[in-house]
């Protein structure tokens, strides 16, 4: 026990020390800014060139480095921690950092690739993706808000490669409880200008002095806060919960369709 506790303490120190050396990071909460399907692809290429010799061609483990496909990392748990390990290496081990030769973007792409491996352990889903696709465009009316391959609305996240980022369980949870995890980009806002003009829509971006909104008709607006008579922010999702309107079978079908929206499969 003592040995294990000591080990954890040393690792904690290590990771904290490493994070201190990455200027762009603000603690362990730093989100990966390079997390798209393309980033994962670039990360894969980088991995092949820089890491596969030790960790195996598909990160499944090699003679010198452990398997990285399990989702559990010995020396880091957060994206920021992974960034630090990749950038600076792990002292007194064969794991050398790549930070000196690579841009921050490249390192984040490696993180994105490693993260994608966990969800990329493709699992069998029970639903029928073809029926799910019909539900997506029909009963669910998802395309009025979401884009897939340039088709669809602007009022929800682009789902073109959602299957690479969310597991079937996570997708189901998103459909049942859309308010459980709402990124700020998808909050909504209602403002009243001092001359009475009222605008309501997605809060694209907000700062101390100004706010930018995409309204229901897809108009872009930018306001200085000093010109607003009234301003309300709704920090919940504008997406309905599908638990009541969809049967469990339909939800399975929809999840099967969404899970199939993957860079690798399409």
């Amino acid at each position: 026990m003592l040995r294990k506790a000591l080990h954890a303490g040393i690792i904690g120190l290590l990771i904290n020390g490493m994070i201190g050396s990455v200027p762009a990071l603000s603690g362990q909460e730093q989100d990966n800014p390079y997390n798209t399907g393309q980033d994962i692809q670039s990360g894969e290429q980088l991995f092949g060139r820089n890491c596969s010799r030790c960790h195996g061609l598909e990160a499944g483990g090699g003679e010198r480095g452990p398997n990285l496909r399990t989702g559990e990392f010995q020396h880091a748990s957060t994206d920021a921690g992974l960034f630090a390990v990749i950038s600076d290496g792990i002292p007194n081990t064969e794991m050398v950092g790549v930070g000196r030769n690579r841009s921050e973007q490249s390192i984040w792409q490696l993180v994105a690739y490693l993260r994608s491996l966990n969800s990329e352990v493709r699992v069998e889903v029970a639903g029928n993706p073809s029926i799910g696709e019909e539900l997506y465009g029909g009963k669910g009316d998802c395309s009025s808000c979401h884009m897939i391959d340039a088709e669809g609305g602007r009022h929800g996240p682009d789902l073109s490669t959602i299957g690479d980022r969310r597991s079937p369980d996570e997708l189901l949870s998103d459909l049942l409880t859309p308010n459980a995890r709402v990124q700020q980009r998808w909050w909504t806002m209602r403002v009243v200008h001092q001359d009475g003009t009222e605008v309501e829509g997605l809060r694209m971006n907000e700062g101390t002095y100004s706010v930018r909104i995409l309204d229901a008709e897809d108009n872009l607006w930018s306001f200085l806060k000093r010109d607003l008579r009234q301003s309300e922010r709704t920090e919940t999702s504008s997406m309905p919960a599908y638990g009541e309107s969809f049967t469990s079978g339909e939800l399975e079908d929809l999840v099967a369709y969404l899970y199939g929206l993957s860079r690798g499969i399409r």
Partner: peptide, 10 residues
């Protein structure tokens, strides 16, 4: 002030 940003991966 920013509306959005697109980062292209190379």
């Amino acid at each position: 002030s920013q509306y959005w940003r697109y980062n292209h991966n190379l």
